[in-house]
Write a protein that binds this DNA or RNA. Structure first.
Length: 298
DNA sequence: AAGATTGTTGCTTA
DNA sequence: TTAAGCAACAATCT
C-alpha cells in the first residue's frame, strides 16, 4: 500500500533512471488501466521524451515533451492505489542507473518474470530499458492530462503536503475545529492533508499520544502542534528508509522498503508496546483497521 | 466460505 | 453547501 514515502522513493529512483529517456512504444495490456481512450493513450505517448518526474501526495506526475504545435505541457499521471508497482528493467541484468541491486532483501515483482499476468502496461524506452506498470488488483491508473487539467485536479483534491509550511498549526486547527469525525478519518482525507494513508496515520497518532478515534474538534492546540511535528518526522524518517513494505510494496528496482521494522503500532496488534509494554489494540475506525496503544495514547 | 485487506470515488443522507 | 458514512471497485489471503 504505497503512501507518500513509498511513492517518493519510487519518484527519486525514476528521476535518476527515466529523465531524458524517450518512450519508444507503449503496450497497454489492460485497457481500463488507462483513463484515456486506449488507442489515444498508446499513440499519444509514443516518441515523447520524459522531462521530469514530480509527486503530489501519492500521485506521480511525469512531464513529457511537447509535439509540434502543442501549446500546453503534457503529463502522464500514475497512481499506484493499493497494489500498483513500477518496475524498471534494463537489459537482462539488474544494474539500473549505476546502482547495483544485489544488496538488501530483493523482492520480485508480484507474479514473477516481466511481463506477467499482473502487468497492465509497459513502456519501451530508449537505451534498452522497459518500465512495467504491474497491478494485481487493477485499482491503479495511468492518465495523460494537459497542464490546465492537472492544475485543477491538484487544486480540488490535494491538501498541503507533510513537511511543507502550508501544513501548520493555524491551518490544521482550523480544519479540525468544527469536525465531528474521528481524527483518523480527517488525516486520511487527501483533500485536507495529502499523502498519508493507513500506516502513517496510525504511526503519527501513536507518536503524538492521540487515540485514532478521538473526535477531531476536541483535539487541543498543543496536540495539533505535536501532531504536525510527528507527521513530518515519521514521513521524513520513512523516506530516509526507502518506505515500508507491507504485503507487496517494492520500489522501481524490486527492492522492499526498510521502514517496516521501525513501525510502532501498525500491524502489531496483540504485541507489546515498545514504550510501556501494554498490548497494542486493533479496532476499526473510519472503516479501516486501526492500531494504537491504549496506555500511551489518550 | 465469509470476512478482511485498503486508496479513492461517488452516492446517500442529514 | 458541506460533512459523514458507506458501498463499490478488484483480487487474494486467511
Amino acid at each position: 500500500m504505497p503512501e507518500l514515502p513509498e511513492v517518493e522513493t519510487i519518484r527519486q529512483d525514476l528521476e535518476t533512471d527515466l529523465v531524458n529517456r524517450k518512450i519508444l512504444a507503449v503496450n497497454l495490456y489492460n485497457h481500463k488501466t488507462a483513463k484515456n481512450d486506449a488507442a489515444f493513450f498508446v499513440s499519444d505517448l509514443e516518441n515523447r521524451k520524459i522531462l521530469s518526474i514530480n509527486r503530489r501526495g501519492k500521485l506521480l506526475m511525469l512531464r513529457v515533451s511537447k509535439r509540434q504545435g502543442e501549446s500546453e505541457n503534457k503529463y502522464l499521471l500514475i497512481h499506484l492505489k493499493m497494489t500498483g508497482q513500477l518496475i524498471l528493467q534494463v537489459n537482462a541484468n539488474n544494474i539500473v542507473g549505476g546502482h547495483s541491486l544485489s544488496s538488501g532483501d530483493f523482492h520480485q515483482a508480484v507474479g514473477g518474470e516481466l511481463p506477467n499476468k499482473y502487468t497492465r502496461c509497459s513502456f519501451k524506452l530508449s537505451n534498452k530499458a522497459t518500465l512495467y506498470f504491474n497491478d494485481l488488483r487493477k485499482f491503479g491508473y495511468l492518465k495523460i492530462v494537459e497542464e490546465s487539467e492537472l492544475k485543477k485536479l491538484l487544486e480540488n483534491n490535494y491538501g498541503p503536503e507533510p513537511g511543507s509550511k502550508d501544513l501548520n498549526v493555524k491551518y490544521l486547527s482550523n480544519v479540525l475545529k468544527n469536525r465531528q469525525a474521528s481524527i483518523k478519518s480527517v488525516l486520511l482525507n487527501q483533500k485536507l492533508i495529502a499523502g498519508l494513508g493507513n500506516i502513517y496515520v496510525d504511526e503519527a497518532l501513536f507518536f503524538s499520544g492521540i487515540r485514532p478515534d478521538r473526535i477531531a474538534k476536541k483535539i487541543s492546540k498543543e496536540e495539533v502542534a505535536k501532531l504536525i511535528k510527528e507527521i513530518n518526522k515519521v514521513i521524513a524518517q520513512s523516506i530516509k528508509n526507502r518506505g515500508t513494505t507491507f504485503s507487496n510494496y517494492v520500489d522501481s528496482s524490486g527492492r522492499s522498503g526498510n521502514f517496516s521494522q521501525k513501525l510502532k503500532v501498525y500491524g502489531r496488534a496483540g504485541e507489546t508496546c515498545y514504550g510501556c509494554g501494554v498490548k497494542i489494540v486493533k479496532i476499526k475506525t473510519a472503516q479501516r483497521g486501526t492500531h494504537y496503544c491504549p496506555n500511551c495514547q489518550k
